[in-house]
Design a protein around this nucleic acid. Structure first.
Lengths: 181, 181
DNA sequence: GTGTACTGTCTTGACATCGAGATATCTCTC
DNA sequence: GAGAGATATCTCGATGTCAAGACAGTACAC
């Protein structure tokens, strides 16, 4: 057989080539794998967090606060930008996290429209434990790659990600050449 | 070398290093990028399909049928394995696709428990148009990489994906949690 | 100050998904 | 050919998310 079919995407690409030999389906080799891998990752994360009684969405929020450092406090706006969800979703998340005693809400003393969300001691302990566990498991998932390959992979992924994260104007995602400074 | 912060993940990793210098957060360089990229990809796909009046979930199902070739017919079970969703979700999806006239359901003549789902002519035309469009856009997203890099990236991603796709547990994708209890 | 535009957060309704269980059928063993 | 267990699909309730819009407060011009 010509096809190795080492993973589902190899099979998928082979099927497309048989059905539509007129199309260049190479992009799927990368992007379908990204999607499927993300899906599997979600599952793995869910399993990791279950031991700490956390849902992935809870972890996402707690983690953003944890990374902020010292007072572990951010506005809902900052949180939604960090987690790529909408404002309605973030309100809902904060409500439930507060009800669970993992975060606390207080009015922003400097902007009366605003709110500040901070980790409780419980939340801090929980997120630190879950994060350490997550890293352990992620390291496991990556164990098939050597250090060199892992760095290469990270770098290539960054190239794809940069146009999404930095320029608010995705005009020509061609050769990255937009200089801000 | 300090952090360049070329994308959000670089910033995220830098923040973790400042907060938890005791932890090795290297895995995030790869896996956080995979998650975030998948998220952005979903958005891009949604935009591409909107022109063809298709939702991403509709495309996923139609595409699986299209790849099957010739009679463009598969069982719900085969479809849910191809799309990584649960059986309840697949039933719902088929219902709505049938209502939209994009697929057709008929009893499996060889297994009275079973059902066979096939593309209608409308469905076939729609998925072919949308797929060509998707490939165009995906190629655009990948234009920052040369052929060599793209192949390298695909290969590295496959290495990560293989253990998920081939292990001796090719069962339902919906294993929420395992572990004996 | 008053008006206008903008910003930050919350509310609401629709919806796709999951998980667990129900039902019907098939397969295999005795 | 009867029973046990596996398999295929569907049903149902709960949930997390989004999109759009409501509302309060801020910033700046005049």
């Amino acid at each position: 057989m010509t096809e190795d079919a080492r993973d589902e995407v190899d099979r998928l690409v082979a099927a497309w080539r048989a059905e539509r030999p007129d199309l260049d389906v190479e992009p799927l080799q990368v992007l379908s794998r990204v999607s499927r891998l993300a899906r599997h990752l979600d599952r793995a994360r869910r399993a990791a967090f279950a031991e700490h009684d956390l849902e992935p969405w809870e972890f996402d929020v707690l983690t953003a606060l944890r990374r902020a450092g010292k007072p572990y406090e951010l506005s809902p706006g900052a949180l939604l930008r960090a987690t790529l969800v909408t404002s309605g979703t973030m309100t809902n998340r904060i409500d439930r996290l507060a009800a669970a005693g993992l975060v606390r809400r207080r009015p922003d003393p400097e902007d009366r429209r605003g709110v500040l969300v901070s980790l409780t001691d419980t939340g801090l302990g929980r997120v630190d434990a879950a994060f350490a566990d997550l890293l352990r498991r992620e390291r496991e998932l990556l164990s098939g790659l050597g250090d060199e390959d892992r760095r290469t992979l990270a770098s290539l992924l960054r190239t794809l990600l940069t146009p999404f994260d930095s320029p608010p104007d995705p005009h020509r995602p061609g050769r990255g050449h937009d200089h801000s400074e």
